[in-house]
Amino acid sequence: MKKIIITGALGQIGTELVVKCRQLYGTENVLATDINEPEADSEVAQGPFQVLDVTDKDKMFKTVEEFGADTIMHMAALLSAVAEKRPMFAWELNMGGLMNALEAAREYNLQFFTPSSIGAFGSSTPKVNTPQVTIQRPSTMYGVNKVAGELLCQYYFEKFGVDTRSVRFPGLISYVKEPGGGTTDYAVEIYFEAVRKGEYKSFIDKGTYMDMMFMDDAIDAIIKLMEADGGKLIHRNAYNLSGMSIEPEMVKNAIQEYYPDFKLSYDVDPDRQSIADTWPDNIDVSCARAEWGFDPQYDLDKMTKTMLEAIENKEGVK
């Protein structure tokens, strides 16, 4: 990777991916794009940026050609809970944008990355130690998009020789940018509210296990996969990833090590809970470990300490 375009650069993953890639490959070699303009003082704005609607194929092709890209990291997408409220728009954005990005990769011979998700699984998928290759029958538009995306990426690899690579991300936890519209968002919100208010009301019920990962591990995984020897990749679209399997009470207990008076209550959102109930409790990541050395560094305790300290710094709490 020498000249990288990142779509959806103002999203939860994109924001931090842009910063890391610019550190590694040089600021001028990473073009951030999004449908919205970044705030002038944001880190994304401190380097090349272009407004890009990923559903505009001509604009995407022109952007790739003018920048001289050799890699596209396609992060633009509508997340799970929002996609359920706007399924037609989700299809147009998630699938239309993906097709345009894949066509650009084919036309200009680009290396290609786009994330899938544990949302690609469904209620008929084995919930414990979910295999890399297993039944995928999601019941959400987001999940349908992700399964279709995995298949499309594999098709473009086999049919056209496009170097497509992907992972199935779990819930991602970060202090840099607060999330919006994801089923796993409680696991970010709980840390912010612990610092701000000392209490949190979870929209996901106790005992609901879901896979999660600290954002630093997620960003490192993308780069490690993209730099890996393609000849060793068997399950390139898409690898199971996870840093930990947790439920809300576990997060509460971890926070209480630092905030003993922290209180957790529940006001379950039936829509997001019904989505979470179809996802695995924990997934098998052995293929990612074996094929390209996936090795997350954060467990729940280390992540909790890092999150709370960073949010305290952002909020000016001593």
Rank of each mutant, 00 (worst) to 15 (best):
D284W: 00
E43F: 12
A290R: 12
R165P: 03
S117F: 05
K85W: 00
V18G: 10
V133S: 10
S123M: 02
M1L: 09
K197D: 05
K62Y: 08
R272P: 07
T164C: 15
A288I: 15
G231R: 06
S117G: 05
E150N: 02
A9T: 10
Q273D: 08
V128R: 03
S245T: 04
I283F: 06
R168L: 06
V54G: 00
A76W: 13
M226R: 03
G119V: 04
G182Q: 15
P126W: 12
P131W: 11
I118V: 04
D269C: 10
E107L: 10
A187L: 13
L31H: 06
D185W: 07
L78W: 00
Q46R: 11
E257P: 01
A40P: 00
T71S: 14
S166A: 15
G26K: 05
A290Y: 06
Y298F: 15
Q273L: 08
E189M: 05
Y266P: 10
K201E: 14
I173E: 05
D216L: 02
V19Q: 12
V19H: 14
V147E: 09
E65G: 04
N240F: 06
D295Y: 06
P138W: 04
S286E: 14
D216W: 14
E150S: 01
I283D: 05
M213Y: 12
Q256K: 11
F203E: 07
N237M: 09
D216P: 15
I222K: 00
R196F: 06
P280K: 02
N253L: 08
A76T: 01
V51E: 10
P87S: 01
D70M: 02
V285Y: 11
A254S: 15
V162A: 04
V268T: 12
D284I: 01
E150K: 00
N145D: 15
A290V: 07
Y259F: 14
D70P: 09
M303L: 11
I219C: 11
L79F: 15
